[in-house]
Design a protein around this nucleic acid. Sequence first.
DNA 1: CTGTTAGCGCATTCAA
DNA 2: TTGAATGCGCTAACAG
Lengths: 345, 345
Amino acid sequence: VTPFEPTPNRRPTMREVARSAGVSLKTVSRVVNDEPGVSPALQGRVHTAIAALGYEPDARARSLRRTGARDQTIGLILVDAGNPFAGLMTRGVEDVARKHGSLVIAASSDEDPERESLLFRELVARRVDGLVMYPTDHAAPSIVRGLERGTQVVCVDRVPDGLPCDAVVSDNRGGIREATELLLSTGHRDIGYLGDSLHIYTARERLAGFQEAMARAGISVDRDRTVAGLRDPEVAESAARAMLSGPRRPTGLIAAQNLVTIGTIKALHQLGLEHEVALISFDDVQFATELSPAITAVAQDPYELGRRATVRLFERLDGDTSEPHLDVLPVPLIRRGSGEMRVSR
Amino acid sequence: VTPFEPTPNRRPTMREVARSAGVSLKTVSRVVNDEPGVSPALQGRVHTAIAALGYEPDARARSLRRTGARDQTIGLILVDAGNPFAGLMTRGVEDVARKHGSLVIAASSDEDPERESLLFRELVARRVDGLVMYPTDHAAPSIVRGLERGTQVVCVDRVPDGLPCDAVVSDNRGGIREATELLLSTGHRDIGYLGDSLHIYTARERLAGFQEAMARAGISVDRDRTVAGLRDPEVAESAARAMLSGPRRPTGLIAAQNLVTIGTIKALHQLGLEHEVALISFDDVQFATELSPAITAVAQDPYELGRRATVRLFERLDGDTSEPHLDVLPVPLIRRGSGEMRVSR
DNA sequence: CTGTTAGCGCATTCAA
DNA sequence: TTGAATGCGCTAACAG
C-alpha cells in the first residue's frame, strides 16, 4: 500500500458496504440483486450503507462470475456511424436492445476489412452477447470464426456471399426493377444508371435489378449509360454532368444511392435539366418534397432494418437454432414527380 | 457439473491454453500481452495453442484485475442517436476514442431525465472510463453524483446550469445574433422567430441572441412574432403557416433549429412565399443549395463538437485537474440567398 | 527466462 | 434468514 498515493477513483465495493452495514458480503449481494430472504431490518441497513457510500455494483465482476448469463451488451459494427442511414439503423438496434435490458457498443469499420476484423475481436474480447453487423464485403472470415466460437451475428443491409448467418436486407433488386419499370412505362428507352461501387453487395443487387428490367423490356443498355463506383456526391455530380452533357442525353436517370442522388440532383440543377430529365432515387432524401420537381424515390427503412436484425439476434441468443434466414424488406416506390416525367424531345 | 448440459458458448481460457501449450498460466499471459522475457520457443508453442483453441482474451477479467487501469470504453449518452446531428457527433467521439484505443457505448435518453439517469448508472456500473453527454436539461443531479464518485463527464452541445464539468457548445447566441443582424441590415424590421422548446439550453441561448440583436437595433419584438416549443417539422410547419397567414406578415424569418427549418421551408413553399419572405436557418440542411432560394444558414459542426468533447475527456482521464472549461465553437453564417432577400412590399 | 501465489469484485454453493 | 468458503479469468507481486 502506498500511503501517499490515494488510489484514484476508487469506488466502494460490496465488501465495504457489508462492513459499513455490519452484515456479510452475501447479504449485500442479496439486497443488491433483489433476492428474497433478507429481513426488512437488514435490508434497510444495507440500503442506507449503499446510499452513504455511493456504491454502484460492478457489472464486470458480476458478468465474470455469472458464467453463462448474459452480459447485457451487444456490439454493432457499422461502416460509418456518422451516416444518417446508419444513425437510424442504430436507433432501431438500440430500441430492441433496450427492451432486452442491453446496451450497444457501436463502432465504424469505414469499409476497411482489417479494421472490421479488429473491431470484431475487440467486441468478442468484451464478451458482448452478440453482434449486429453492417458488413464490408470482406467480412466473411471474421464472422465465420466468430460463429464457430459461438458468437451470434446478424448482418444488416448487406449479405456477404455464402455466409451462414442471419441477415436482414432491403429488396434492392426489386426496388430498382420497379423504378426502372416506371421509367419504361412512361416511354423512356434511354435510361442512365448511376450507382455505387460494385464491390458492395447492395450496389451489385441494384445494378442487377436495373439490368433485369431492361432485359425484360428487350432494351440493350450501352456501357456508357451505366456508371458505377460513385462513392460521394462530388464524384456522382461530375459523372452525372458528363452523362448529361454527352452527345445523346438520356431521358431518364436512376440514382442508385443516397449520396449519388444528391450529386445527380446538383448536376441536373446546374444544367437546368431538372424538368427535362426524369429521375428516380434509391433511398429517400430530405426535402424530396420541397425540390422542384419533387423527387420520386424508392425508400428504404433503415430503422426497421436495424430493428429486425436485433430482434433476430435476441431470438438466436434465446436459443433459436434454426437455419440461417434471409429477411428481405420490401421498398415502396414513392411517386412525387421527378420519376413520372415523360420523354421530352 | 451437469454432464448432459454442454456449457453453451464456452470459450477457452488462458488456463486451457497453458495446459495445451505445456506452459504456465503466466507465460501465456506474457505472450498475450506482449510482455518481454519469453523465449521464442515458448512463444511459438503458446501462439500455436492460441490459434488451435481459438482463444480470445477476456477483457472483463483483465480490466477487473488491472485496478486503476483504463477500461478502454467510454460512454456516450445522447438525446437521440437516430438524429443526423447526433450521428455526426458520435463519429467525432468515436474517432477520438479510437485514437486512445477505446470503444464507445452509445445510448439515447429521448429527452427523458429518468432514462438519462438510468443510463448514467448503467454506464457507471460497466465502469466506463468516462462519459460524453448530450444532456437533457435535468441532467445535473446525475452528473454531480457521478463526478463526486470520480466519473469524468464532458457535456456537448448543451450545458446544464451551474454544473461543474467541462462542456463544448456552439455559439448559439452569437450565431443567431449575427443572423438577425443580417436581416436587420437589409431593412427587415418585422422579423418572426421560430424556435425549439425553451426547456432546452440551446433554445434559450438562441432566443436570447435574437432578442439581443433586436434590442440593440431598438426594435421591440411582438409576442406573436416569437414562437417557441416547436419540437418537430409538422408543428413548426403549422406555426410558420399561421405566422405567415396572419394579418401583418413578417418580412423575414429565423428558424432556430434543424427540424424547425424543414417545417418552415415547407410552409413557405406551400404558401408560395419562398421568394417573398427572407429566411435564415440555424443548422445547415441537406439540399440547402438546391432549394430555390438556396438557404442561408448558421452552420454548426456536430462532428467537431463530439471530437473536442472527447479530446477534453481524455485530457481529464490523463490527469488534468484544472477548472471546468466551457469551449464555445464559432458558427459561420453561410449566405446563399434566402437570408439576403430585401423587404418586399 | 519461467512459474507460483494471491486477489480484483462479485455470485454461487453449501453450511449454519 | 444469514454467512463462510470457493472460484469466474485474468494480472500483480513475488519468487526461483
